[in-house]
């Protein structure tokens, strides 16, 4: 249809401006609830702008007006046709005690895969070190783990935690941020169809296995448990949960035995991924604090029995929380 563009714009622009203002208000205040009258008006203005767009779409001489209207209609379309609840308030306690454990349980197979790969890596690290003790330098790229474990234990016990005096808080900060970055990378690698996640989990396991074997074969099992368990009982499961999230993502990408489109599969797991990210970040903050302020103290300052017990209590508490919390409110039908 050919029309007088100038006249058309002069006539319609006030309504476009009104729609733009209304959209701006809605966008600026996500909690804004429109009255019935305002909603009707929004719908009317959207219909009118959409109709204007239809009329203009055959008018090749006005690309700038067309572009403006397309964006305006697009914004209004997003507001009007969105059916997902935008006003859902985030309640931390509810999220932590219900959503997080429920989400964890919904994807137990991904967690099992994640833990399996870590254990495989652990066994691999231990076996390699058993077969070739010289491989320690390659497997453990940490200077403080290079020496003989018994010498390090003696040194640590003599230090009585003084070496971290005045730097525990910054150490905790570095541990938290580093571990969270590792967790995020493990998750993000799910986008490589899970291959990157597999590599990271396996490598993590290799380091764990090599360190453990090194200390155990040197007769330092108590020290090892006392050193690793207080923070490791949270830190290691957290990285495994990050791996779980990575495999959920990979599963959605691969989409085996699902009839949904890729877009729908990814949409179906998106909220679960965010929940698990929140979960492992929170756990890693705790692990960082424990590692900096608790794990670095050894006998005679802190008996190993106390440290080991603390670590075991944390481990039991974590898996009780993940395994049983929020069961009452759990939906009976779960996602495939």
């Amino acid at each position: 249809m050919i029309l007088d563009l100038q006249q058309f714009i002069v006539t319609e622009r006030p309504r476009w401006d009104e729609l733009e203002d209304l959209l701006h208000r809605i966008e600026q205040d996500p909690g804004l609830r429109l009255t019935l009258e305002q909603t009707r008006r929004l719908h009317y203005l959207y219909d009118r702008a959409a109709s204007d767009l239809l009329r203009l779409s055959t008018f090749a001489s006005s690309p700038e007006v067309l572009g403006y209207l397309e964006t305006l209609v697009g914004r209004a379309y997003g507001e009007i046709h969105e059916t997902r609840d935008p006003h859902r308030r985030f309640l931390f306690l509810q999220w932590f005690t219900r959503e997080l454990p429920q989400t964890f349980r919904r994807h137990l197979r991904a967690f099992a895969l994640s833990i399996g790969l870590t254990l495989l890596g652990t066994a691999f690290g231990a076996v390699i070190l058993h077969l070739d003790p010289d491989a320690k330098e390659t497997l453990l790229p940490f200077e403080h783990l290079m020496g003989k474990p018994s010498e390090r234990v003696a040194e640590e016990e003599q230090n009585q935690g003084r070496h971290l005096e005045g730097m525990k808080a910054s150490f905790a900060g570095q541990l938290m941020t580093h571990n969270i970055q590792v967790g995020m990378l493990t998750l993000a690698m799910g986008m490589t169809y899970g291959l990157g996640t597999i590599v990271l989990l396996f490598y993590n396991g290799v380091i764990l296995g090599a360190v453990s074997y090194d200390y155990i074969q040197d007769g330092q099992t108590r020290f090892l448990l006392g050193w690793l368990l207080p923070h490791g009982s949270i830190e290691i499961p957290s990285v495994i949960i990050a791996g779980q999230a990575g495999f959920i993502l990979a599963g959605a990408l691969i989409g085996s035995r699902q009839r949904l489109s890729l877009r729908d599969r990814l949409a179906a797991v998106r909220n679960d991924l965010v929940t698990l990210i929140g979960g492992f970040c929170l756990l890693l903050v705790w692990a960082g604090i424990v590692e900096a302020f608790f794990s670095q103290y050894h006998e005679p300052v802190l008996p190993y029995g106390v440290k080991i017990a603390f670590g075991l209590v944390e481990l039991v508490a974590l898996f009780s929380f993940l395994g049983f919390c929020g069961r009452k409110s759990e939906p009976k039908e779960t996602l495939p």
């Binding site: 005045g166 808080a169 570095q174 938290m176």
Partner: peptide
Amino acid sequence: LSPDVAGAFFAVSYF
């Protein structure tokens, strides 16, 4: 006031 707290603050806030 505290170099330790300052270090922790920087690490966490930068992240």
